[in-house]
Amino acid sequence: MTSSENDALLDAVGPAFSKLRRGVLMEVENPVSAKDMSRSLVLAIVQEGEREMTVGAVAERLGVDPSVGSRMVSDCISAGYLSRAASQQDGRRTVLHLTSEGEAMMTRFRRLQREAFEYITADWSERERLEFARLMLKYVDAVAGLRHRGPAS
């Protein structure tokens, strides 16, 4: 490929990610509702949290106002997916935990994500699927590492 073709390819990555973010799981064979997509974002943050997760921490990770984060967490609590508990490190704080229903919801959601990936890539070779999966995980790990590197200059 030429340099300009490489540039065009790299320039297309950002818009492609934007398209993915707009709801690919709502457009596949077994679509996920917008409500469940929203809930799964909150539950994943709590499930993957490296520390005790508070409502504020969830809002921060989602990049939303604390009031929006609070409404999203409250919805998950009302649905039975999350519970609040006193922090073991600071009894004045309230932390979030997945309930057994929340764990089951995430298990179902992870299964749907895999099914969506397989549906979307049905005409790809096994080698292409595995290479894309490997590179996507590498990319996500690099993004997670940005928290430790600080802002770009």
Rank of each mutant, 00 (worst) to 15 (best):
S74I: 02
M72T: 03
G63H: 12
A57G: 15
Y81S: 12
E126K: 03
R71Q: 15
S87K: 06
L25Y: 02
E5W: 04
G14Y: 10
Q113Y: 07
R147I: 03
D65V: 02
C76T: 10
L146M: 02
V58M: 00
S100C: 09
G56M: 00
F117G: 09
E5P: 06
G80M: 13
Y119W: 15
Q47G: 04
T121Y: 01
L62H: 10
E115A: 14
E50V: 02
E27H: 11
A8F: 01
S78A: 14
N30E: 03
V95A: 05
R21G: 09
A152N: 12
E115R: 12
Y119F: 15
A79H: 15
G56N: 04
S87P: 08
K35Y: 05
I120G: 04
A116M: 07
V68H: 13
R22P: 08
G49I: 01
M53K: 00
A8M: 03
R127C: 07
A152S: 13
D123F: 08
E5A: 12
M136G: 14
L20R: 09
P151A: 03
R114K: 14
V143M: 02
D7L: 13
V64M: 06
E52V: 02
E128Y: 00
F17D: 09
L82F: 04
R110C: 08
V55M: 00
R51N: 13
P31E: 03
F109K: 11
A86I: 01
G150H: 09
E60V: 01
A86M: 04
E60K: 05
R93W: 01
A59K: 05
V42C: 07
S33N: 10
A8V: 04
F132I: 04
V32N: 00
A116Q: 08
M106R: 03
M106N: 06
M37G: 00
V46F: 04
S40A: 13
